[in-house]
Computed example of a mutant assay.
Amino acid sequence: MANPARDTDGAARHQAGDSQSGRPATFVEQVMAELRKVVQPTRNELITYTIVVFVFVLVMMAFVFGLDQLFQWLVGLVFGA
């Protein structure tokens, strides 16, 4: 049987036909290997990303509001409000 594929930290990945398919210990090992790869953002990055998200949400809210007003006006024209 061929060696199982391994990620960068050496945690074995599940291969089709493994006799240990779905072992909870393997799953936890893989989760921990992935968590070690996570890089925490700096304070400035976190603030920047938060502002970007808020601005994007506000723009999308304005867009949806505009569409709602447009459709309301069109429905008023069609059905006579």
Rank of each mutant, 00 (worst) to 15 (best):
L58S: 13
L77W: 03
T50I: 02
V75A: 07
M61N: 09
Q69H: 04
P24G: 07
K37C: 12
K37D: 12
A11S: 14
P24C: 08
M32C: 12
D9V: 02
L70H: 08
L70V: 15
A62E: 05
R23H: 09
T48K: 14
T50K: 04
K37A: 14
M61Y: 05
F65R: 11
A2S: 11
V53G: 04
Q15E: 14
T48V: 10
N3D: 12
D68A: 09
Q15Y: 03
P41D: 08
L77F: 02
L67A: 02
A16F: 07
Y49S: 11
R23P: 00
T42P: 02
A33E: 04
L35T: 09
G10L: 02
V57W: 04
V53D: 09
F56W: 07
V57M: 09
E34A: 15
Q72E: 10
F65E: 11
N44W: 09
F79P: 00
M60G: 00
G10V: 03
V31I: 15
L74V: 08
V52A: 12
V59A: 13
I51Q: 10
H14A: 00
V52M: 09
F65C: 11
F27W: 11
Q15A: 08
F54D: 06
Q40C: 06
A33V: 09
A81P: 01
H14F: 01
I47S: 11
W73D: 13
P4G: 07
V64E: 07
M32L: 15
G80Y: 04
G10R: 00
Q20F: 01
E34F: 10
L46C: 11
D9T: 03
M32R: 15
G17L: 01
F63K: 07
S21P: 00
T8Y: 01
R23W: 08
V59M: 13
A11L: 05
M61I: 12
L46A: 14
F65M: 13
H14V: 00
A5E: 05
V52Y: 04
T42H: 05
D18H: 03
A11Q: 02
A16K: 04
V55I: 14
G66D: 10
A11M: 04
T50A: 11
L70Y: 12
Q20N: 11
Y49T: 06
S19E: 07
Q40W: 08
G17E: 01
M32D: 13
A16P: 01
L77I: 02
V57K: 05
